[in-house]
């Protein structure tokens, strides 16, 4: 690592602030669209698209209640930790053709570690709230974390391994490298099927990571009255709302970066700043589509699973699909 000038540090700090701000705004905006679309599919009118913003501002001026049994510093710290860690992941993710701000300071393995942090923050916050409902929610969140880690890691490792076989000289786990070399171009027919299976695996992990139906057992409204979040109110709940919005962007961007890193600017023969804008817009469209199919569509189409069924689903079927995908990609490489 070469030494960095003060200017570069300044650029990175400003970039980080811009990315964090955009991540939150776009996340809340997408949450609004998600709610509206879900409502339309459920034969409802639905809230206006700006509703998540209204919710946020409303919650910020509401009283922040800390329950008597809670451990205040952990209880208040957990929402900040979850928000900060999810924003940190955003800084490692490429937006269209723009390389990530913290490119070179960590790779996709770090992202996988960081992805567990919001979940851990919620678990800690849940345990610290001193409510039986939150306790059960936190236990469930832990179980779920353990369940979806294996399929998630399988999908990511398989892509990295394949890349390392094709370009041994690259830093294969850096997202820039993965972004520049889409998996679909590197594999033969067998590997293509494998890649599809890996995509299905990641798509199954996404609702779990975001605690959305069918994998919303930790928050289960009708069972636990909000579970982990049951004691949270005011500013803390608003921060959790932001975390949820940012996490949606993180998971969808990750899917896009791993599987659909294509831009359209070169097809339309644009270049320079204009190409950058077009690609960024196209990226937003892509993450919207991923969100629609992986979150909105699934959550209106199924019922909530019980926590043992969630674990089973992730450990057996989803893991098998993931490992099968990995095997096909390995086979593809060996045979060719």
């Amino acid at each position: 690592m070469t030494s960095i000038s003060l200017f570069e540090i300044l650029v990175k700090i400003i970039g980080a602030i811009v990315i964090a701000f955009l991540g939150i705004v776009i996340g809340l905006f997408y949450k609004g669209i998600d709610r509206k679309l879900a409502a339309r599919m459920q034969a409802r009118v639905g809230p206006p698209i700006r509703q998540p913003f209204l919710d946020f501002f409303k919650l910020m001026i509401k009283e922040n209640i800390v329950p008597e049994n809670a451990v205040p510093w952990i209880f208040n710290g957990a929402p900040i930790m979850t928000l900060v860690s999810s924003i940190t992941i955003l800084l490692y993710l490429p937006v269209g053709n723009i390389p990530p701000i913290l490119s070179g300071y960590g790779d996709i393995v770090l992202i996988i570690y960081l992805l567990t942090l919001p979940a851990i923050g919620m678990v800690v916050g849940g345990f610290a709230s001193g409510s039986p409902y939150a306790n059960i929610g936190a236990q469930r969140e832990m179980v779920m974390m353990m369940s979806y880690e294996l399929p998630l890691v399988t999908a990511v490792i398989a892509l990295g391994w394949k890349l390392s076989q094709v370009y041994p000289q690259l830093n294969v786990f850096s997202l820039v490298a993965i972004n520049a070399n889409p998996i679909w171009g590197l594999v033969g027919p067998l590997g293509f099927i494998g890649a599809i299976l890996l995509f299905i695996t990641l798509a199954a992990v996404t609702p779990g990571e975001l605690s959305k139906i069918p994998f919303d057992a930790p928050e289960a409204e009708t069972e636990l009255a909000g579970g982990i979040l049951v004691e949270y109110s005011g500013r803390n709940l608003a921060l959790f709302g932001l975390t949820d919005a940012v996490k949606t962007i993180v998971m969808t961007s990750l899917t896009v970066a791993l599987f659909f890193p294509y831009g359209i600017s070169h097809l339309l023969a644009f270049n320079g700043a204009f190409a950058l804008i077009v690609d960024t817009l196209f990226f937003l469209v892509k993450i919207f589509l991923v969100m629609f199919f992986e979150v909105t569509f699934i959550r209106v189409a199924v019922a909530r699973l019980k926590i043992d069924q969630v674990s089973f689903a992730y450990w057996i079927p989803v893991s098998i699909i993931g490992l099968l995908g990995l095997m096909l990609i390995v086979l593809d490489t060996i045979i060719v």
């Binding site: 599919m41 459920q42 034969a43 409802r44 139906i213 919303d216 009708t222 189409a301 909530r304």
Partner: peptide, 16 residues
């Protein structure tokens, strides 16, 4: 019943 299962779409459609 559908709502208790977390299947809100069915709640709205059946009540319609």
């Amino acid at each position: 019943a559908a709502h208790e299962l977390g299947f809100d779409s069915v709640l709205y459609l059946s009540w319609r």
